[in-house]
């Protein structure tokens, strides 16, 4: 009996220390959480108010959302954004991966790395200028082909947008890939060589598997950057570009300029829910795999 009491006492005191520790740790997180809540979460909830009322302040429930989906402009923007991300993000991961593997062996990597990173530093106006001088009706490409086409106004504009994105963002992923490759112990490749595995199989079974964490980060960064390409697109093609590159950001910006809070907030909600759903799915899958390990 006495022993039991003693044990309880000890556990109690450990728990107490535990809770104290936890509270202290909370202090570390507090500023970040409060700030994020104040500037992101709280006003987001507030904007729900706008999303469910019309321009006169009357409650209309989901009518704004219905209008949103009925709007061809929104549907076009959403579809284009989805297509763009589907094309650009994988490219932005695969191309650096391949280049990284090639570069990894060579020693000239250092300079090339810097060069590939340089587009991140170039201001959007200059980047836009270059792509424009390449693709406008009297640009370099038109000159080579001897025609008079403004490529940004044709269906090729989609490819141009993807090209601009990859050009700008590839460098960062390349650095990620190279660092990730450096983290794979050489012994694995030696073992593969001993086992007689061809280089392709070695690539698939070793490189890819151990690059997954790196590739994940590359994916997240690419995802975030895919929205930022709007800046260059805007400078290249203006407010209402060709229909192949009219994206959600264009739509949202126009709504904001028109102070159309109804459309703006409902669009924000839709985007957030879609992205949020993806993130949550990923997150849960990630956690599960962690526990599985």
């Amino acid at each position: 009996m006495n022993q039991g009491n003693r044990v309880n006492l000890r556990r109690f005191s450990r728990n107490e220390k535990f809770r104290n520790e936890n509270r202290l740790a909370f202090l570390f997180i507090a500023p970040s959480v409060l700030g994020a809540a104040l500037f992101f979460i709280v006003p987001f909830v507030m904007s729900l108010g706008y999303a469910t009322t019309d321009s006169n302040g009357l409650f209309v429930g989901l009518a704004n959302f219905k209008n949103l989906f009925a709007s061809e402009a929104f549907r076009l923007a959403a579809w284009n954004t989805f297509k763009f991300m589907g094309a650009a993000i994988p490219l932005n991961i695969i191309i650096p991966l391949l280049i990284g593997c090639l570069l990894y062996k060579s020693t000239g990597g250092g300079w090339l790395k810097t060069i590939f990173m340089s587009p991140l530093v170039i201001p959007s106006a200059c980047a836009a200028f270059f792509f424009q001088s390449l693709f406008e009706s009297n640009g370099l490409i038109s000159g080579i082909l001897g025609v008079n086409t403004d490529w940004l106004q044709t269906d090729a504009s989609f490819a141009i947008a993807v090209a601009v994105y990859v050009w700008k963002n590839m460098g960062y992923n390349l650095v990620l890939v190279l660092a990730g490759l450096a983290g794979i112990p050489k012994e694995y490749y030696e073992w593969a060589a001993i086992e007689g595995m061809g280089s392709v199989r070695a690539f698939l079974k070793i490189t890819l598997v151990y690059m997954i964490p790196t590739l994940f980060i590359a994916f997240v960064m690419s995802f975030i950057s895919s929205f930022k390409v709007y800046r260059e697109l805007y400078m290249l093609a203006g407010n209402y570009p060709n229909e192949k590159i009219y994206m959600l950001q264009h739509y949202m910006n126009h709504q904001f300029a028109a102070l159309d809070y109804q459309n703006l907030t409902s669009a924000s909600f839709v985007i957030t829910f879609v992205i949020g759903a993806f993130v949550i799915v990923f997150f849960v899958a990630d956690k599960k795999s962690e526990y599985g390990e």
């Binding site: 909370f26 979460i41 706008y50 949020g276 949550i280």
Partner: peptide
């Protein structure tokens, strides 16, 4: 920190981080 809500908050963080700034624009503006 060891707390149940930790992962929930972190997940929310990721969502906010990943959003294009236009989605949070009106919130920030308000």
């Amino acid at each position: 920190w060891k707390f149940r809500l930790k992962e929930v908050i972190f997940c929310a963080y990721i969502v906010v981080m990943v959003l294009p700034f236009q989605a949070t624009l009106v919130s920030n503006y308000i």
